[in-house]
Design a protein around this nucleic acid. Sequence first.
DNA 1: ACCTGAACACCGTTCAAGT
DNA 2: ACCTGAACACCGTTCAAGT
Lengths: 174, 174
Amino acid sequence: VPTPPRTSIAAITAAGSEILETRGLQGLTMQAVAVAAGVRAPSLYKHVADRDALVGLVADAAALALAAHLAPEDNLAGLARALRSWATAHPHAYRLVFSGQGSPDVAAAAGAPVLAIARGLAGSADELAAARLVTAWATGFISMELAGAFQLGGDVEAAFDYALDRLTSALTAR
Amino acid sequence: VPTPPRTSIAAITAAGSEILETRGLQGLTMQAVAVAAGVRAPSLYKHVADRDALVGLVADAAALALAAHLAPEDNLAGLARALRSWATAHPHAYRLVFSGQGSPDVAAAAGAPVLAIARGLAGSADELAAARLVTAWATGFISMELAGAFQLGGDVEAAFDYALDRLTSALTAR
DNA sequence: ACCTGAACACCGTTCAAGT
DNA sequence: ACCTGAACACCGTTCAAGT
């Protein structure tokens, strides 16, 4: 006897996103997601291949949320600050987005605004290389900050602003 | 009846480092390390508090190995290329070093050469901020490369050299 | 003083049985 | 067609018992 589904990819992804937010990637277990979706763990395998696939769905959802948060920004400093504020508000989601566990297509779409801003600064010849410099710096800075890697003290805010200033002038096409 | 230890922190760390190299962080299980150290899993708890502590020891050993690999470099480009070559040769160890799971003291010691080079470029007033810019860029670039995040094609080598050139001129004290 | 087998709680995953 | 309990292999960790 055929039965209508009692859950869905969308519901599973939403449940997973909320669990990631509150309990981190380690807390994102099949059991926890199943309970939050109102179902038992084995049922999830009717909707996702395995835990890696579920983590990928959650990563993509986070990447889209991040992209929406970045969309209004149209200059390098604004974009970098928006990225950092989102990372501070959603540290687990931020780490997951940049861990490479999501779909490459979604990641590429989310990175598009950076390309546009890099083109405006560096010109279209250096667009891609400039975008990679900026993206690498921003993700590196923020992930080190989240990991507590800035142990030497000093002013982390000042280091962020210093880097933005130096990068802006370094990338501006001559 | 007292008994001499059949293993040691050093042996456990060495076994863990080799397992990390070949099987990754996921393969670094208490069971696998115990077998490699010639002992059973419960015995490890006489030497380390728990798996996190063991991972921390392996992270510190990797950070020291990385520091030794970077030590001969005395300019920004050489340092960055040496970091990247080590990361390519030891991807699991590289990720672990920058995951913040090791001891802050060891991480700070390993970062000292970057500070010296940054001081030479930017002057002592901006030394720390300049070092953070460079470190954030390099770790971000390499971790994105290891994660396969450079999906848009283009020349990754060229992007690395472009960034080195732009950063060097951006940091040089005026 | 250290090592061990046995046990516990947990995890991801499979599968026959239910509806 | 989907959901479930039961089971399996694995994991980290504890602990009483051995030497």
